[in-house]
Design a protein around this nucleic acid. Structure first.
Length: 774
DNA sequence: CAGTGAGCGAGCTTCCGCTTGACTT
């Protein structure tokens, strides 16, 4: 048994550090926090100065027992949790729970996992900073008070099991408000004029020079008038301007920027990025993946330097030291970077390789020289008007870091006007226009958030931490406040005027607009909860609430304020708001009355029901009349649905006739439109069949097609056991037996299975039944 | 997998941040 016990937060870190410290040290990990507030009664003594009641978390009991034993046997215990608020609290909890004696306990910290940094830390131990610990206790208690007092108000006034919190509720607010901006957005259009001129190049070939007019026209008439002038105009080069510009590489990755780039470049979800990064970290390939620091260790900077010089040469290298400027950053770690900069690739899954490559490139590029560019702007005069055409071209004089990596942007539309080299032209040169077009362009709605752009926004506001971005986004989706979806666009007509060969033509064209891929949409419940919280808890919903309390937490950490007093100042008025909301607020379900059905005269309304948003036709009366109900379709929301759209919903289910003596019905279910016949369900074909108009012959056709498909899906049956069938499903062959399905191991030839083989598979256990996560 | 929406009431839900598996799809 070694004399020295070192406790860090993560096991992967423990493994690395143990190598640096030699055999007198045993390094182990606490796996993060070991204690938390107890669940019942909020775990806070409200009568007694907000004293927290801590209990060892159930999943940490084993670890704590183990740590206690190790600590008892060691002569010296070194607590090496992170050097930030949470890390200091972990150190303090360890000291308390393990009952460590001060004389044999030392607190050490380091920001990078390098041998020098660790050895230096061991030489400079310090006591636990109780002010920093108290700042964490204030943070923890405040979050518990907000979460556990506001959520029950929602259970009473909106729906059970809902939740509210300092971080999640503001995240939902961002999405709800963006959606309303989009709903209220009024698109305007203007005519953008572009021209393609023909000019000779050095070799005498004719090449194109594309240019855009420096003015847009508001109306078609104005655009037309301009093109008419062009019919007789002469075009010539008025001016050529060249000016140098440069581009600078982006800083190394933090959690948030890694999530954004992996989303833009690799299409990863935020949680996917984190789990792939976790595997890279655990196998020692990258540094820690939950960080808000852009700092690189000297070691990383030096090895990057030699890698760059070896592959690209001296002039591609530039030493850069990055500093973090995001709100609330605590900088306990390095930036996310490869552990070994000379390793350009790693083994692993395709996802691991791609993410690693991204991290490697970003890190290397961050230590490379600026790219030098030259931008040329050519102005083209139109003889009979004052407007001018402009063409811009860009040439890379020195590629610098661009040789390795370029950060992407969230503006996907900008890819179309990529700049390139212009053909050679001279001032006063006369140009021949091949054609000139005036195209109607519409102003763009504000973009919906993606998971990654929401993380970016939260980080900018200092809301949430690297370890919580991914879980927060999962939570607001699990609670049903937000959905991540694709939505088809709608078709829109636009006008295009073309002048070619002296002739003016006028066309109406069609484009698709507003299609969305993997974007975050608020649900009805999300909007109703948001509005409720905004009305009764505006302080919590304020975008600067977190930033405001962070200031107070910092004051606690600096020893200028006492944490319980800070909490008391917050809690007294906050609790009044809770009491007030419970007393004065009405139960809310987002109900909207849309009007009366012109056919029956009955009122039509929409609201959130037990199984989601619904439309209601008529009202329950004392004479026993019952209203008709219909669920809203995906994409429809209470806030924008119209009377006409709601009335459409009551046209289903439709009975369209009989087939083989059984009724045929059409309806829309959870998985889209379907036909019901003889207690069997057949889906209508997407984008082909319309449930409101489909007729019997087509329905029969679909029913027969389904039967044919089912017959083909049958691989094998056994006479002795008619209830057992081997079928071909979406994921390959499987066994169906007494209404349960059983997986067949990969690589098995399903046709050759005997009855005995099948029974063995069945005995081995049913396919895991779909379970509800706790 | 596909419908439903009464009314009563017991017992439960819930936060944010620090960690890793153990799970299912």
């Amino acid at each position: 048994m070694q004399d020295n016990l070192v406790i860090v937060e993560s096991p992967a870190k423990a493994k690395t550090i143990e190598k640096f410290l030699g055999k007198d040290f045993h390094v182990t990990s606490s796996m993060g926090h070991i204690r938390d507030l107890e669940k019942k009664d909020a775990g806070i003594d409200l009568e007694n100065n907000y004293v927290p009641k801590y209990v060892v978390s159930p999943d940490k009991k084993k670890i704590v027992t183990e740590l206690k034993k190790l600590a008892k046997d060691a002569k010296q215990v070194w607590i090496a949790s992170d050097e930030d608020r949470e890390g200091e609290a972990i150190a303090w909890h360890l000291q308390e729970v393990l009952k460590l004696k001060p004389e044999k306990t030392k607190r050490i910290v380091f920001h990078e996992i390098t041998k020098d940094a660790i050895l230096k830390a061991v030489k400079n131990p310090r006591p636990i900073d109780i002010n920093l610990v108290n700042a964490q206790q204030a943070r923890r208690v405040l979050d518990r008070l907000v979460g556990f007092e506001v959520s029950p108000v929602l259970w009473k006034k909106v729906k059970p099991s809902l939740s509210a919190g300092r971080v999640q509720s503001v995240a939902v607010r961002l999405i709800v408000e963006r959606e309303r901006e989009i709903i209220n957005f009024e698109s305007t259009s203007a005519f953008r004029v572009t021209a393609v001129f023909l000019v000779p190049d050095d070799k005498g070939n004719t090449v194109e020079l594309k240019a855009e007019l420096n003015k847009r026209f508001e109306t078609k008439a104005e655009a037309q008038k301009f093109l008419e002038k062009c019919q007789t105009a002469e075009f010539s080069i008025a001016d050529i301007q060249t000016r140098p510009s440069k581009r600078t590489p982006a800083a190394p990755f933090t959690t948030s920027t890694l999530q954004q780039e992996a989303s833009r470049k690799l299409g990863f979800s935020v949680s996917q990025t984190m789990s792939v990064a976790q595997r890279l970290y655990e196998s020692g390939k990258i540094t820690y993946m939950r960080t808000d620091s852009v700092n690189l260790s000297d070691l990383a900077i030096n090895t990057s330097k030699s890698t760059i010089i070896n592959t690209h040469g001296e002039k591609y290298h530039k030493y850069r030291q990055y500093t973090t400027k995001s709100k609330g950053a605590q900088e306990a770690h390095e930036a996310i970077r490869p552990t070994y900069m000379d390793q350009e690739e790693v083994s692993g899954t395709a996802q691991e390789k791609r993410l690693y490559e991204l991290i490697w490139k970003r890190t290397i590029a961050s230590q490379m020289a600026d790219a030098e560019l030259e931008r040329t702007t050519v102005s083209i005069k139109v003889s009979n008007t004052s407007e001018v055409f402009q063409a811009t071209g860009e040439v890379i004089k020195f590629d610098g870091f661009l040789r390795v990596y370029l950060e992407s942007t969230d503006n996907e539309d900008e890819g179309s006007d990529a700049k390139s080299l212009l053909p050679p032209v001279k001032t006063n040169q006369v140009l021949r226009a091949n054609f000139i077009e005036a195209t109607e362009r519409f102003s763009q709605k504000p973009p919906r958030y993606t998971e990654a752009s929401l993380v970016k926004k939260l980080e900018e506001q200092g809301i949430g931490r690297p370890s919580t971005y991914a879980p927060t986004i999962t939570t607001i989706q699990n609670r049903g406040y937000v959905v991540k979806e694709d939505r088809p666009g709608v078709e829109r007509e636009y006008i295009q005027l073309t002048l070619k060969n002296g002739k003016l033509s006028d066309k109406t064209k069609v484009e698709t607009t507003g299609a969305e891929k993997s974007k975050l949409f608020p649900t009805d419940i999300g909007m109703v909860v948001n509005d409720f919280l905004m009305k009764y808890f505006d302080q919590i919903m304020d975008y600067s609430f977190t930033a405001n309390v962070e200031v107070e937490f910092d004051e606690i950490a600096d020893g200028k304020r006492v944490w319980n007093e800070v909490i008391d100042e917050f809690y007294k008025p906050f609790h009044q708001h809770i009491e007030n909301a419970l007393e004065v607020s009405e139960r809310t379900n987002g109900e909207r009355v849309l009007g009366d059905d012109p056919k029956t005269g009955l009122p039509v309304s929409v609201k959130i029901g037990r199984y989601g948003p619904l439309a209601q036709l008529g009202e329950a009366t004392e004479e026993g009349e019952k209203p008709q109900f219909a669920s809203l379709r995906p994409g429809q929301i209470l806030e924008t649905i119209t009377l006409e759209e709601a009335l459409e919903l009551f046209k289903l289910p439709r009975e369209i006739g009989e087939y083989e003596g059984k009724k045929v019905k059409v309806n829309i279910g959870r998985f889209g439109p379907y036909i019901q016949h003889d207690s069997k369900f057949v889906s209508l074909e997407k984008n082909v069949d319309d449930p409101y108009s489909v007729e019997l012959p087509r329905a029969i056709e679909l029913i027969e097609a389904k039967r044919e498909k089912d017959r083909n899906a049958l691989i094998k049956t056994f006479e002795e056991e008619p209830e057992l069938r081997i079928l071909n499903g979406r994921w390959g062959p499987y066994i169906s037996y007494k209404k349960k399905n059983y997986k067949i191991a990969k690589g098995t030839e399903a046709e050759k299975l005997s009855l005995e083989d099948c029974m063995k598979i069945i005995e081995a256990g049913p396919a895991p039944k779909k379970g509800r996560k706790k």
